Every structure is written in structure tokens, then in C-alpha cells.
Computed example of a mutant assay.
Amino acid sequence: MALDFTQFFERYEELVSEVDAVFNKFETDFPEQVRCEKGCSDCCYALFDLSLVEALYVNHHFRERFAGLERNDIMERAADIDRQLFRLKRELWKASQAGKSTEEIFETVARTRMRCPMLGEGDLCVMYDKRPITCRLYGVPTAIEGKGHTCAKSGFKGGEKYPTVHVDMIHERLMDISRDIAEHLGSKYKAIHEMLVPLSMALVTDYNEDYLGVRKPGDDAKPEAAAPAPQPQASGASIPKMEDAPSEACNTCDSDKSLCASCKENSFSIVLGGDDE
């Protein structure tokens, strides 16, 4: 059975249109401060995660648009980034265990730069029209959990007041669509709509019925806590999430399994990067 997410993609595209309209208004009202231009790729090195609906959307259009050697090249770049993210996640987890504060860890993430696998020649996005919402908002003032962010290359100055995009509200709408996808599928994984993955993993994952937990005749009706481990289509480790979903970190961890709960308590997601203003 081919999985059809058209109705959910349409809802996502409605949200994208609203976000684009907001960005366009910033360009009109603050032409000196919004300095985004063709060839600027500062946002293409920031770390952030995608909700389920965005991951499915990007994956769908990537597989529609690219084939052969071009697809393989992009997937190899994505697999390489996953390996880097795996090492970063392990280092940050160890830092949290050593007593580093969550704020310090997030600051480390914000300073970390990794080239997006979709960034092609001439520093141009090869799938610009289908880029995630985070990419569409980079360059204007945003607030995440009450903390302000903006692009370091913009003209927005710290200490001054500007209209601000509350990313948490957008995240809630993305979670709502993702939850509806899980309900539509009747997924046996009760928390699959809460999973967040980097764009690199969204590209290499095969979002088939097994991965999404679509029930088959004879399946136990009781929901399971987690989705299966990601199934990358290119070599390389996946970024560990240290939460419900099994991960490469769990598979390679040499600690006593009784520590799993504390790992989850100290977990964190990679969010919108960039310097704070």
C-alpha cells in the first residue's frame, strides 16, 4: 500500500505560506536589517530538527526530485553529517553527565556549524522551494522558549525592540499535524509524532509502513512506546535522540541499562542555531 500524505502536506504548505508572508513583511518593514541574499549560506550550517510532517515532506520531495548519482551524492553527504552528529551528541551527553548546564550545552550547539547536505554548488540550496520552516525564518528575530535569536549577519541589534516570530507556536502546529498523521496511520508507536530528526536523517530514512508502525493483521492492538530505529539508505550512524526511540547510541552504550532513565532525563533536542541577540 502506497502511503498518501497529501492532505497533511497541504496543511503543512498552508503553514509555510503564512511563514513566508511573515518573512516578506519583515523584508518590507525592515529592509536594512534583513540582509538575506542569493549566495548567503549562513543558515545552511545551523543545527535544527524536523517534526514528523516536515521530515516526511522533505523526504517525499527529495525522492521525487533526485535519482541516480545525484541522489547518491546527497545521501552520502547526509550520512557523513549523521556520523558527525552522532559524535557531537555523545560529547554533549557526556558533558551533561559531567555537570555542564543545559544552557551551556545549547550554547555549544548554537556555535556548532555543519554544512547542510542540500547545499550545492555556488552555496545554493538544491531544494530551496521545499526547504524547512526554520530555513525560511532565519534572518529575522525569533523566540524559542522565551529566548531571542537572530542571524548574526542581520542588522537587528541586541537591546532594541522588534516584532518577533514565536517559534514555539509554529512548533505546536507542526506537532498537531504530525499527531494527525500518526492517528491517520493508526501507528502502533504512540510517540512517533513527537520524534524530531535532523534534515540529514530525514533524507536517508525509508519512511515505509514498518518504520511508521502501520498495523498489519494480527498485530497487537496495544500501542508501543517507540518507533523502530531509523533505517538509513546510506552508510553511517544515526544521531541518537536519548529518548523513547531506540538509537545507535543505545546499541553501542556500554553503561548499565539501569541508567537509561537518567539518559532520557538529561536528553535535549538540537534546535534553531545562530547567535543570540
Rank of each mutant, 00 (worst) to 15 (best):
M1T: 09
D4L: 05
Y12Q: 02
K25Q: 15
T28L: 12
E32W: 07
R35W: 03
C40I: 13
C40W: 03
C40Q: 10
C44D: 11
C44E: 10
Y45M: 05
L50F: 09
S51Y: 01
L52Y: 00
N59W: 01
E64S: 15
R65Q: 14
A67D: 15
I74H: 00
M75C: 13
E76D: 08
A78M: 09
R83N: 15
Q84E: 11
L85T: 02
R90M: 09
I105A: 08
V126A: 02
P132M: 06
P132N: 07
P132C: 07
V140L: 13
A152N: 09
G159K: 03
H166R: 15
V167F: 15
V167P: 01
M169C: 00
D180C: 09
L185Q: 05
G186I: 04
G186A: 06
K188E: 10
I192L: 14
M195C: 07
V204W: 01
D206C: 10
Y207T: 07
L212G: 00
G213Y: 00
V214C: 10
D219M: 08
A225P: 03
A226Y: 09
A226H: 10
A227P: 01
Q233S: 14
Q233P: 07
M242Q: 07
E243H: 13
E243P: 00
A245V: 10
E248P: 04
K257R: 14
A261N: 11
S262R: 11
E265K: 14
F268N: 06
F268L: 09
